[in-house]
């Protein structure tokens, strides 16, 4: 395998990164309203959301990718492989981030809510000034773990033809008949992508912790 072959595989990095970052962004944003609905006092909505979360998590990611690409994509909607994979992983990320956020919210003592109410802070201010900053601190480590897992799961998108790292590795192994070196390059690429994420998360957490640690 030549350097050019390895470079061809590495060209899948933007696609893997785009899929991961896109799905994580969707999940981080949608996860918040899902968490709020999951925690609402209105019982029917809460039960419905709990059921949806359990359902989304119960099916393996590859099934969601197939359901959206071959299910919705055939006839109903015209979805490109990338958009289909992004939707599937965005959906999965949303319910998982909702649960991570909820863990963060549960870690905040009821006294914080009471203080916010006694100080007459509005609902928006209570969330943005008091709750979200404290939730973020608790949610950061599991979010970093999750985003790394999401990146590895994104290899599933290769099955519907998204030209990301795993797809290009398989392509190159079929061209060169050098499976071992082709997939070794793929592996190195994944490691190179996940190390900075882990490092950034750890540094950010340390910084936050140093400020308020007991």
């Amino acid at each position: 395998m030549t350097g050019a072959d390895a470079a061809h595989i590495a060209m899948g990095i933007p696609m893997t990164l785009g899929l991961t970052a896109g799905a994580f962004a969707i999940g981080s944003v949608l996860g918040f309203p899902v968490m709020l609905a999951r925690s609402t006092g209105f019982l029917p909505l809460r039960v419905a959301v709990i059921a949806v979360i359990a359902f989304v998590r119960a099916l393996p990611p590859i099934l969601w990718v197939f359901l959206i690409y071959f299910g919705l994509g055939s006839g109903l909607l015209n979805l490109s492989p990338f958009v289909a994979a992004l939707s599937a992983f965005g959906l999965i990320a949303a319910v998982n981030m909702a649960e991570i956020y909820r863990g963060g919210m549960l870690s905040i003592s009821s006294g914080q809510w009471e203080a916010a109410r006694a100080l007459n802070l509005s609902r928006v201010s209570t969330w943005t000034d008091i709750m979200i900053p404290q939730m973020t601190r608790v949610a950061l480590p599991p979010s970093a773990t999750y985003v790394i897992g999401l990146m590895k799961d994104s290899a599933i998108a290769s099955t519907i033809g998204v030209t990301e790292l795993a797809y290009r590795g398989k392509q190159m192994s079929q061209i060169t008949f050098e499976g071992l070196s082709a997939f070794a390059v793929v592996g190195v690429c994944y490691i190179a992508l996940s190390l900075p994420v882990a490092w950034i998360a750890r540094t950010a957490e340390k910084k936050l912790r140093a400020k308020v640690a007991r």
Partner: peptide, 30 residues
């Protein structure tokens, strides 16, 4: 509540803010 100040047994300060910010925040917001 505008007329009532409340002090709790467990203080309930906001741990992610400086002492000054703890006291100033609600003045600005409310």
């Amino acid at each position: 509540r505008r007329q009532l100040g409340m002090v709790f047994q467990s203080f309930n300060l906001f741990p992610h803010m400086t002492v000054l910010r703890n006291i100033s925040l609600a003045q600005e917001r409310t």
